[in-house]
Design a protein around this nucleic acid. Structure first.
Lengths: 224, 224
DNA sequence: CGACGCGTTGATATGGCTCAAGAGTGGTGG
DNA sequence: CCACCACTCTTGAGCCATATCAACGCGTCG
Protein backbone atom coordinates (compact mmCIF):
# COMPACT_ATOMS: atom_id res chain seq x y z
CA UNK A 1 0.00 0.00 0.00
CA UNK A 2 1.62 3.18 -1.20
CA UNK A 3 -0.77 5.95 -0.27
CA UNK A 4 0.01 8.49 2.38
CA UNK A 5 -3.10 9.14 4.43
CA UNK A 6 -2.94 6.41 7.05
CA UNK A 7 -6.54 6.78 8.14
CA UNK A 8 -7.87 6.38 4.65
CA UNK A 9 -5.25 4.22 3.03
CA UNK A 10 -7.50 1.19 3.02
CA UNK A 11 -9.97 3.01 0.81
CA UNK A 12 -7.51 3.78 -1.92
CA UNK A 13 -7.13 0.89 -4.29
CA UNK A 14 -3.84 0.12 -5.92
CA UNK A 15 -4.59 -0.75 -9.51
CA UNK A 16 -1.04 -1.49 -10.46
CA UNK A 17 1.17 -0.48 -13.32
CA UNK A 18 -0.63 0.17 -16.56
CA UNK A 19 -0.08 -2.52 -19.13
CA UNK A 20 -0.77 -0.21 -22.02
CA UNK A 21 2.57 1.54 -22.23
CA UNK A 22 6.19 0.66 -21.83
CA UNK A 23 6.57 3.32 -19.13
CA UNK A 24 4.96 1.81 -16.05
CA UNK A 25 2.44 4.17 -14.50
CA UNK A 26 1.12 3.44 -11.07
CA UNK A 27 -2.51 4.45 -10.59
CA UNK A 28 -4.95 4.48 -7.70
CA UNK A 29 -8.70 4.83 -7.51
CA UNK A 30 -10.54 6.77 -4.83
CA UNK A 31 -14.21 6.80 -3.91
CA UNK A 32 -16.39 9.84 -3.14
CA UNK A 33 -15.98 11.12 0.38
CA UNK A 34 -12.68 9.33 0.89
CA UNK A 35 -9.53 11.31 1.51
CA UNK A 36 -6.48 11.02 -0.65
CA UNK A 37 -4.43 12.99 1.84
CA UNK A 38 -4.86 15.43 4.70
CA UNK A 39 -3.17 18.70 5.56
CA UNK A 40 0.07 17.95 7.36
CA UNK A 41 0.53 14.46 5.92
CA UNK A 42 4.02 13.81 4.60
CA UNK A 43 3.84 14.45 0.88
CA UNK A 44 5.66 11.59 -0.76
CA UNK A 45 3.43 11.44 -3.82
CA UNK A 46 2.05 13.81 -6.40
CA UNK A 47 -1.12 12.85 -8.24
CA UNK A 48 -2.42 13.53 -11.69
CA UNK A 49 -6.17 13.24 -12.12
CA UNK A 50 -6.98 10.75 -14.86
CA UNK A 51 -10.73 10.67 -14.30
CA UNK A 52 -13.17 11.98 -11.73
CA UNK A 53 -13.10 15.17 -9.67
CA UNK A 54 -11.12 15.94 -6.52
CA UNK A 55 -11.70 18.62 -3.94
CA UNK A 56 -8.82 20.43 -2.22
CA UNK A 57 -9.81 22.13 1.01
CA UNK A 58 -8.42 23.90 4.00
CA UNK A 59 -10.23 24.18 7.29
CA UNK A 60 -9.82 26.62 10.19
CA UNK A 61 -10.11 25.50 13.79
CA UNK A 62 -13.55 27.05 14.10
CA UNK A 63 -14.80 25.14 11.06
CA UNK A 64 -14.63 27.81 8.41
CA UNK A 65 -13.66 26.13 5.19
CA UNK A 66 -12.03 27.27 1.98
CA UNK A 67 -12.13 25.10 -1.12
CA UNK A 68 -8.74 25.77 -2.69
CA UNK A 69 -9.45 24.04 -5.98
CA UNK A 70 -11.36 21.32 -7.75
CA UNK A 71 -9.12 18.78 -9.43
CA UNK A 72 -10.34 17.79 -12.88
CA UNK A 73 -8.76 15.32 -15.30
CA UNK A 74 -5.40 16.69 -16.37
CA UNK A 75 -4.90 18.58 -13.13
CA UNK A 76 -2.05 17.80 -10.80
CA UNK A 77 -2.57 17.84 -7.05
CA UNK A 78 -0.39 17.37 -4.02
CA UNK A 79 2.43 19.81 -4.61
CA UNK A 80 4.48 19.60 -1.45
CA UNK A 81 6.11 22.34 0.56
CA UNK A 82 8.51 21.40 3.34
CA UNK A 83 7.67 17.82 2.45
CA UNK A 84 4.06 18.15 3.65
CA UNK A 85 0.68 18.55 2.02
CA UNK A 86 -0.93 21.86 2.85
CA UNK A 87 -4.53 20.99 2.03
CA UNK A 88 -6.94 18.12 2.52
CA UNK A 89 -7.88 16.27 -0.65
CA UNK A 90 -10.89 14.04 -1.21
CA UNK A 91 -12.95 12.84 -4.12
CA UNK A 92 -16.35 14.15 -5.24
CA UNK A 93 -16.93 11.26 -7.62
CA UNK A 94 -15.07 8.00 -8.15
CA UNK A 95 -11.69 9.07 -9.46
CA UNK A 96 -8.56 7.53 -10.83
CA UNK A 97 -5.17 9.08 -10.34
CA UNK A 98 -1.71 8.57 -11.73
CA UNK A 99 0.79 8.52 -8.88
CA UNK A 100 4.23 10.07 -9.08
CA UNK A 101 6.90 10.02 -6.42
CA UNK A 102 7.73 13.43 -5.09
CA UNK A 103 11.34 12.73 -5.93
CA UNK A 104 10.39 12.83 -9.61
CA UNK A 105 9.42 16.45 -9.21
CA UNK A 106 12.21 17.56 -6.96
CA UNK A 107 15.05 16.08 -8.89
CA UNK A 108 15.49 15.58 -12.57
CA UNK A 109 17.26 12.29 -11.96
CA UNK A 110 14.29 10.17 -12.92
CA UNK A 111 12.36 10.78 -16.09
CA UNK A 112 13.22 14.28 -17.35
CA UNK A 113 10.07 14.42 -19.47
CA UNK A 114 7.94 13.62 -16.44
CA UNK A 115 9.89 16.11 -14.39
CA UNK A 116 9.26 18.78 -16.98
CA UNK A 117 5.55 18.02 -17.07
CA UNK A 118 5.21 18.24 -13.31
CA UNK A 119 7.10 21.50 -13.25
CA UNK A 120 4.89 23.03 -15.92
CA UNK A 121 1.88 21.85 -13.95
CA UNK A 122 3.20 23.69 -10.90
CA UNK A 123 3.70 26.87 -12.92
CA UNK A 124 0.20 26.55 -14.38
CA UNK A 125 -1.09 26.08 -10.87
CA UNK A 126 0.50 29.37 -9.77
CA UNK A 127 -1.05 31.16 -12.71
CA UNK A 128 -4.50 29.70 -12.05
CA UNK A 129 -4.32 30.63 -8.39
CA UNK A 130 -3.57 34.23 -9.35
CA UNK A 131 -6.87 34.32 -11.26
CA UNK A 132 -8.63 32.97 -8.23
CA UNK A 133 -7.22 35.79 -6.08
CA UNK A 134 -8.92 38.40 -8.18
CA UNK A 135 -12.13 36.43 -7.90
CA UNK A 136 -12.01 36.07 -4.12
CA UNK A 137 -10.80 39.55 -3.38
CA UNK A 138 -12.53 41.80 -5.80
CA UNK A 139 -15.59 40.26 -7.45
CA UNK A 140 -19.26 40.41 -6.50
CA UNK A 141 -21.23 37.24 -5.92
CA UNK A 142 -22.72 37.21 -9.41
CA UNK A 143 -19.33 37.88 -10.99
CA UNK A 144 -17.86 35.05 -8.95
CA UNK A 145 -20.49 32.56 -9.96
CA UNK A 146 -20.40 33.63 -13.60
CA UNK A 147 -16.61 33.27 -13.65
CA UNK A 148 -16.88 29.88 -12.04
CA UNK A 149 -19.37 28.65 -14.62
CA UNK A 150 -17.32 30.08 -17.48
CA UNK A 151 -14.16 28.34 -16.35
CA UNK A 152 -15.94 25.08 -15.72
CA UNK A 153 -17.71 25.18 -19.07
CA UNK A 154 -14.50 25.90 -20.93
CA UNK A 155 -12.91 23.01 -19.12
CA UNK A 156 -15.55 20.29 -19.02
CA UNK A 157 -18.56 21.69 -20.88
CA UNK A 158 -20.41 19.44 -23.31
CA UNK A 159 -22.43 20.57 -26.29
CA UNK A 160 -26.18 20.13 -25.88
CA UNK A 161 -28.00 21.09 -29.04
CA UNK A 162 -27.02 24.67 -29.74
CA UNK A 163 -25.99 25.24 -26.12
CA UNK A 164 -23.30 24.06 -23.77
CA UNK A 165 -24.01 22.08 -20.67
CA UNK A 166 -21.91 21.49 -17.58
CA UNK A 167 -22.41 19.01 -14.76
CA UNK A 168 -21.57 20.10 -11.24
CA UNK A 169 -20.33 17.21 -9.12
CA UNK A 170 -19.97 19.49 -6.10
CA UNK A 171 -22.65 20.78 -3.73
CA UNK A 172 -23.74 24.39 -3.36
CA UNK A 173 -21.74 24.46 -0.14
CA UNK A 174 -18.60 23.44 -2.04
CA UNK A 175 -19.17 26.18 -4.58
CA UNK A 176 -19.78 28.66 -1.77
CA UNK A 177 -16.56 27.69 0.00
CA UNK A 178 -14.68 27.93 -3.28
CA UNK A 179 -16.01 31.41 -4.06
CA UNK A 180 -15.99 32.80 -0.53
CA UNK A 181 -19.79 32.99 -0.24
CA UNK A 182 -22.57 31.20 1.66
CA UNK A 183 -24.73 28.43 0.22
CA UNK A 184 -27.75 30.72 0.40
CA UNK A 185 -26.02 33.37 -1.68
CA UNK A 186 -24.88 30.79 -4.21
CA UNK A 187 -28.41 29.47 -4.47
CA UNK A 188 -29.91 32.94 -4.86
CA UNK A 189 -27.32 33.85 -7.47
CA UNK A 190 -28.10 30.70 -9.47
CA UNK A 191 -31.75 31.71 -9.33
CA UNK A 192 -30.88 35.20 -10.50
CA UNK A 193 -28.94 33.88 -13.51
CA UNK A 194 -31.75 31.47 -14.25
CA UNK A 195 -34.43 34.17 -14.10
CA UNK A 196 -32.30 36.33 -16.44
CA UNK A 197 -32.43 33.42 -18.91
CA UNK A 198 -28.62 33.33 -18.95
CA UNK A 199 -28.54 29.78 -17.69
CA UNK A 200 -31.03 26.97 -17.22
CA UNK A 201 -30.81 24.41 -14.45
CA UNK A 202 -31.70 20.79 -14.89
CA UNK A 203 -31.86 18.47 -11.89
CA UNK A 204 -29.96 20.88 -9.63
CA UNK A 205 -26.49 19.84 -10.73
CA UNK A 206 -26.68 20.30 -14.47
CA UNK A 207 -26.35 23.80 -15.83
CA UNK A 208 -27.07 24.79 -19.43
CA UNK A 209 -25.42 27.97 -20.62
CA UNK A 210 -28.07 29.79 -22.65
CA UNK A 211 -26.22 33.08 -23.16
CA UNK A 212 -22.48 32.48 -22.96
CA UNK A 213 -21.70 36.03 -24.03
CA UNK A 214 -23.88 37.56 -21.33
CA UNK A 215 -22.29 35.22 -18.83
CA UNK A 216 -18.80 36.25 -19.87
CA UNK A 217 -19.74 39.92 -19.60
CA UNK A 218 -20.95 39.40 -16.07
CA UNK A 219 -17.86 37.38 -15.18
CA UNK A 220 -15.55 40.13 -16.34
CA UNK A 221 -17.54 42.92 -14.75
CA UNK A 222 -18.48 44.70 -17.99
CA UNK A 223 -20.61 47.62 -16.83
CA UNK A 224 -22.42 46.75 -13.60
CA UNK B 1 19.74 45.42 -21.95
CA UNK B 2 18.21 42.20 -20.73
CA UNK B 3 14.98 43.20 -19.10
CA UNK B 4 11.64 42.35 -20.56
CA UNK B 5 9.30 45.30 -20.14
CA UNK B 6 10.08 47.41 -23.16
CA UNK B 7 8.37 50.51 -21.85
CA UNK B 8 10.35 50.50 -18.65
CA UNK B 9 13.56 48.85 -19.67
CA UNK B 10 15.48 52.10 -19.53
CA UNK B 11 14.72 52.40 -15.84
CA UNK B 12 16.19 49.08 -14.90
CA UNK B 13 19.90 49.31 -14.42
CA UNK B 14 22.15 46.45 -15.34
CA UNK B 15 24.70 46.16 -12.58
CA UNK B 16 26.59 43.34 -14.15
CA UNK B 17 27.84 40.04 -12.91
CA UNK B 18 28.75 40.03 -9.28
CA UNK B 19 32.46 40.04 -8.69
CA UNK B 20 32.13 38.51 -5.25
CA UNK B 21 31.64 34.92 -6.21
CA UNK B 22 32.92 32.53 -8.77
CA UNK B 23 29.39 31.88 -10.00
CA UNK B 24 28.50 34.96 -12.02
CA UNK B 25 25.16 36.36 -10.95
CA UNK B 26 23.52 38.99 -13.03
CA UNK B 27 21.65 41.57 -10.96
CA UNK B 28 19.45 44.56 -11.74
CA UNK B 29 18.25 47.46 -9.66
CA UNK B 30 14.80 48.98 -9.90
CA UNK B 31 13.46 52.24 -8.51
CA UNK B 32 10.10 52.79 -6.76
CA UNK B 33 7.20 53.14 -9.14
CA UNK B 34 9.09 51.54 -12.00
CA UNK B 35 7.83 48.32 -13.52
CA UNK B 36 9.96 45.22 -13.72
CA UNK B 37 7.42 43.58 -15.99
CA UNK B 38 3.78 43.80 -16.98
CA UNK B 39 1.06 41.22 -17.38
CA UNK B 40 1.37 39.66 -20.81
CA UNK B 41 5.07 40.43 -21.28
CA UNK B 42 7.10 37.47 -22.49
CA UNK B 43 8.63 35.94 -19.38
CA UNK B 44 12.23 35.26 -20.24
CA UNK B 45 13.56 35.95 -16.76
CA UNK B 46 12.83 34.99 -13.21
CA UNK B 47 13.92 37.30 -10.42
CA UNK B 48 15.02 36.74 -6.88
CA UNK B 49 14.66 39.72 -4.59
CA UNK B 50 18.02 40.54 -3.00
CA UNK B 51 16.93 43.78 -1.34
CA UNK B 52 13.91 46.07 -1.41
CA UNK B 53 10.24 45.22 -1.81
CA UNK B 54 8.29 44.43 -4.97
CA UNK B 55 4.56 44.55 -5.57
CA UNK B 56 2.78 42.03 -7.80
CA UNK B 57 -0.61 43.18 -9.02
CA UNK B 58 -3.40 42.33 -11.36
CA UNK B 59 -5.87 44.86 -12.69
CA UNK B 60 -9.34 44.42 -14.17
CA UNK B 61 -10.54 46.51 -17.08
CA UNK B 62 -12.70 48.64 -14.81
CA UNK B 63 -9.74 49.43 -12.57
CA UNK B 64 -10.35 47.01 -9.72
CA UNK B 65 -6.98 45.88 -8.50
CA UNK B 66 -5.75 42.86 -6.61
CA UNK B 67 -2.30 42.84 -5.05
CA UNK B 68 -1.21 39.23 -5.53
CA UNK B 69 1.87 39.42 -3.34
CA UNK B 70 4.62 41.60 -1.96
CA UNK B 71 8.09 40.41 -2.89
CA UNK B 72 10.54 40.59 0.00
CA UNK B 73 14.21 39.61 0.00
CA UNK B 74 14.47 35.89 -0.57
CA UNK B 75 11.25 35.77 -2.58
CA UNK B 76 11.20 34.74 -6.19
CA UNK B 77 8.95 36.52 -8.67
CA UNK B 78 8.12 36.12 -12.32
CA UNK B 79 7.10 32.48 -12.55
CA UNK B 80 5.96 32.11 -16.13
CA UNK B 81 2.99 30.25 -17.52
CA UNK B 82 2.72 29.81 -21.28
CA UNK B 83 5.90 31.86 -21.46
CA UNK B 84 4.17 35.00 -20.22
CA UNK B 85 4.00 36.92 -16.97
CA UNK B 86 0.53 36.92 -15.46
CA UNK B 87 0.90 39.91 -13.16
CA UNK B 88 2.39 43.38 -13.21
CA UNK B 89 5.42 43.84 -11.03
CA UNK B 90 6.86 47.09 -9.74
CA UNK B 91 9.01 48.25 -6.87
CA UNK B 92 7.84 49.92 -3.65
CA UNK B 93 11.35 50.91 -2.61
CA UNK B 94 14.67 50.77 -4.46
CA UNK B 95 15.28 47.09 -4.98
CA UNK B 96 18.00 44.83 -6.27
CA UNK B 97 17.22 41.56 -7.97
CA UNK B 98 19.16 38.53 -9.08
CA UNK B 99 18.17 37.61 -12.61
CA UNK B 100 17.78 34.05 -13.82
CA UNK B 101 16.93 32.93 -17.30
CA UNK B 102 13.63 31.12 -17.52
CA UNK B 103 15.46 28.26 -19.18
CA UNK B 104 17.23 27.62 -15.88
CA UNK B 105 13.90 26.81 -14.29
CA UNK B 106 12.37 24.91 -17.13
CA UNK B 107 15.26 22.63 -17.84
CA UNK B 108 17.84 21.17 -15.54
CA UNK B 109 20.51 21.56 -18.19
CA UNK B 110 22.08 24.59 -16.54
CA UNK B 111 22.96 24.66 -12.89
CA UNK B 112 21.03 21.85 -11.15
CA UNK B 113 21.40 23.51 -7.75
CA UNK B 114 19.88 26.70 -9.11
CA UNK B 115 17.17 24.71 -10.82
CA UNK B 116 16.33 22.99 -7.57
CA UNK B 117 16.18 26.29 -5.70
CA UNK B 118 13.82 27.83 -8.25
CA UNK B 119 11.60 24.78 -8.15
CA UNK B 120 11.37 24.84 -4.36
CA UNK B 121 10.56 28.54 -4.58
CA UNK B 122 7.68 27.70 -6.91
CA UNK B 123 6.36 25.07 -4.51
CA UNK B 124 6.67 27.46 -1.58
CA UNK B 125 4.79 30.01 -3.66
CA UNK B 126 1.91 27.57 -4.15
CA UNK B 127 1.77 26.88 -0.43
CA UNK B 128 1.80 30.57 0.46
CA UNK B 129 -0.96 31.31 -2.02
CA UNK B 130 -3.13 28.65 -0.39
CA UNK B 131 -2.86 30.54 2.92
CA UNK B 132 -3.85 33.69 1.13
CA UNK B 133 -7.01 32.02 -0.21
CA UNK B 134 -8.29 31.36 3.27
CA UNK B 135 -7.56 34.95 4.14
CA UNK B 136 -9.37 36.41 1.14
CA UNK B 137 -12.32 34.08 1.20
CA UNK B 138 -13.14 33.48 4.80
CA UNK B 139 -11.63 36.02 7.18
CA UNK B 140 -13.07 39.23 8.60
CA UNK B 141 -11.30 42.54 8.11
CA UNK B 142 -9.63 42.44 11.51
CA UNK B 143 -8.54 38.85 11.02
CA UNK B 144 -7.12 39.77 7.63
CA UNK B 145 -5.12 42.70 8.95
CA UNK B 146 -3.91 40.77 12.00
CA UNK B 147 -2.77 37.89 9.77
CA UNK B 148 -1.03 40.32 7.48
CA UNK B 149 0.86 41.95 10.35
CA UNK B 150 1.76 38.57 11.84
CA UNK B 151 3.23 37.30 8.59
CA UNK B 152 5.09 40.51 7.92
CA UNK B 153 6.48 40.65 11.44
CA UNK B 154 7.67 37.07 11.30
CA UNK B 155 9.29 37.84 7.98
CA UNK B 156 10.85 41.27 8.42
CA UNK B 157 10.10 42.36 11.98
CA UNK B 158 12.86 44.01 13.98
CA UNK B 159 13.20 44.01 17.76
CA UNK B 160 12.49 47.35 19.39
CA UNK B 161 13.11 47.17 23.12
CA UNK B 162 10.86 44.44 24.38
CA UNK B 163 8.59 44.65 21.33
CA UNK B 164 8.79 43.93 17.64
CA UNK B 165 8.47 46.58 15.00
CA UNK B 166 7.67 46.32 11.32
CA UNK B 167 7.96 48.94 8.61
CA UNK B 168 5.29 49.03 5.92
CA UNK B 169 6.69 50.20 2.60
CA UNK B 170 3.25 49.93 1.00
CA UNK B 171 0.30 52.32 1.22
CA UNK B 172 -3.03 51.57 2.88
CA UNK B 173 -4.46 51.14 -0.60
CA UNK B 174 -1.88 48.44 -1.33
CA UNK B 175 -2.77 46.63 1.87
CA UNK B 176 -6.46 46.97 1.04
CA UNK B 177 -5.96 45.53 -2.43
CA UNK B 178 -3.91 42.70 -0.97
CA UNK B 179 -6.54 41.82 1.63
CA UNK B 180 -9.62 42.43 -0.49
CA UNK B 181 -10.76 45.49 1.48
CA UNK B 182 -11.00 49.26 0.97
CA UNK B 183 -8.45 51.77 2.24
CA UNK B 184 -11.07 53.14 4.63
CA UNK B 185 -11.64 49.75 6.18
CA UNK B 186 -7.90 49.13 6.49
CA UNK B 187 -7.47 52.48 8.18
CA UNK B 188 -10.36 51.89 10.56
CA UNK B 189 -9.04 48.44 11.39
CA UNK B 190 -5.59 49.82 12.16
CA UNK B 191 -7.27 52.30 14.48
CA UNK B 192 -9.21 49.52 16.14
CA UNK B 193 -6.06 47.50 16.80
CA UNK B 194 -4.31 50.63 18.05
CA UNK B 195 -7.15 51.52 20.42
CA UNK B 196 -7.09 47.95 21.77
CA UNK B 197 -3.41 48.52 22.61
CA UNK B 198 -2.48 45.53 20.47
CA UNK B 199 -0.33 47.61 18.17
CA UNK B 200 1.10 51.11 18.19
CA UNK B 201 1.64 53.18 15.06
CA UNK B 202 4.59 55.46 14.55
CA UNK B 203 4.70 57.78 11.54
CA UNK B 204 1.92 55.92 9.71
CA UNK B 205 4.12 53.25 8.20
CA UNK B 206 5.83 51.83 11.25
CA UNK B 207 3.87 49.39 13.36
CA UNK B 208 4.95 48.19 16.80
CA UNK B 209 3.45 44.91 17.94
CA UNK B 210 2.56 45.40 21.59
CA UNK B 211 0.62 42.17 22.15
CA UNK B 212 1.79 39.53 19.68
CA UNK B 213 -0.28 36.82 21.35
CA UNK B 214 -3.48 38.83 21.13
CA UNK B 215 -2.67 39.60 17.51
CA UNK B 216 -2.15 35.93 16.70
CA UNK B 217 -5.45 35.04 18.39
CA UNK B 218 -7.28 37.57 16.24
CA UNK B 219 -5.48 36.38 13.11
CA UNK B 220 -6.54 32.80 13.69
CA UNK B 221 -10.09 33.67 14.65
CA UNK B 222 -9.93 32.39 18.25
CA UNK B 223 -13.35 33.17 19.69
CA UNK B 224 -14.88 36.19 17.94
C1' DC C 1 -43.10 5.82 6.22
C1' DG C 2 -39.98 8.83 8.60
C1' DA C 3 -35.52 11.00 8.85
C1' DC C 4 -31.96 13.23 6.91
C1' DG C 5 -29.31 15.97 3.66
C1' DC C 6 -29.49 19.36 0.21
C1' DG C 7 -31.44 23.23 -2.10
C1' DT C 8 -34.47 27.19 -2.25
C1' DT C 9 -36.71 31.19 -0.53
C1' DG C 10 -37.98 34.81 2.83
C1' DA C 11 -37.05 38.17 6.59
C1' DT C 12 -33.81 40.54 9.05
C1' DA C 13 -29.15 41.94 10.59
C1' DT C 14 -24.67 43.66 9.85
C1' DG C 15 -19.90 44.18 8.19
C1' DG C 16 -17.73 46.52 5.11
C1' DC C 17 -18.48 49.83 1.16
C1' DT C 18 -19.49 54.48 -0.56
C1' DC C 19 -19.47 59.19 -0.27
C1' DA C 20 -17.74 63.15 1.96
C1' DA C 21 -14.89 66.05 4.78
C1' DG C 22 -10.85 67.08 7.18
C1' DA C 23 -6.10 66.15 9.07
C1' DG C 24 -1.51 64.85 8.52
C1' DT C 25 2.72 64.58 5.53
C1' DG C 26 6.17 65.37 2.20
C1' DG C 27 7.89 67.76 -1.72
C1' DT C 28 8.75 72.00 -4.39
C1' DG C 29 9.58 76.54 -5.56
C1' DG C 30 9.80 81.21 -4.35
C1' DC D 1 12.61 79.09 5.64
C1' DC D 2 8.04 79.18 4.62
C1' DA D 3 3.80 78.73 1.77
C1' DC D 4 1.56 75.94 -1.07
C1' DC D 5 0.04 71.81 -3.21
C1' DA D 6 -0.71 67.08 -3.89
C1' DC D 7 -1.32 62.97 -1.87
C1' DT D 8 -2.23 59.77 1.81
C1' DC D 9 -4.53 58.74 5.90
C1' DT D 10 -8.30 59.12 9.12
C1' DT D 11 -12.94 59.65 10.57
C1' DG D 12 -17.97 60.08 10.13
C1' DA D 13 -22.71 59.03 8.23
C1' DG D 14 -25.54 56.24 5.67
C1' DC D 15 -26.36 52.44 2.67
C1' DC D 16 -26.12 48.09 0.45
C1' DA D 17 -24.58 43.44 -0.58
C1' DT D 18 -24.12 39.54 1.59
C1' DA D 19 -24.51 36.95 5.97
C1' DT D 20 -27.58 35.02 9.27
C1' DC D 21 -31.58 32.85 10.94
C1' DA D 22 -35.57 30.34 9.85
C1' DA D 23 -38.99 27.70 7.29
C1' DC D 24 -40.08 24.57 3.87
C1' DG D 25 -39.88 21.35 -0.34
C1' DC D 26 -37.85 17.62 -2.44
C1' DG D 27 -35.41 13.43 -3.17
C1' DT D 28 -32.96 9.49 -1.11
C1' DC D 29 -32.21 5.95 1.94
C1' DG D 30 -32.94 3.00 5.70
Amino acid sequence: MYVTAASTAEDVVETGPSKRSIVRQRTVTIKPGKHLFLEGDPADYIYQVASGVLRLTRIMEDGRRQVIAFGYPGDTVGFPSDGLYHTDCDALVPSTLVVHRRAHLESAKGDPVLHQRLLLAALREISGMQDHFMMLGRKSSIEKLASFLMVLTARVGEPLGEFEQVTLPMTRADIADFLGLTTETVSRTFTQLRKSQIIAIDHVNTVIILKPIALRCIAEGDDN
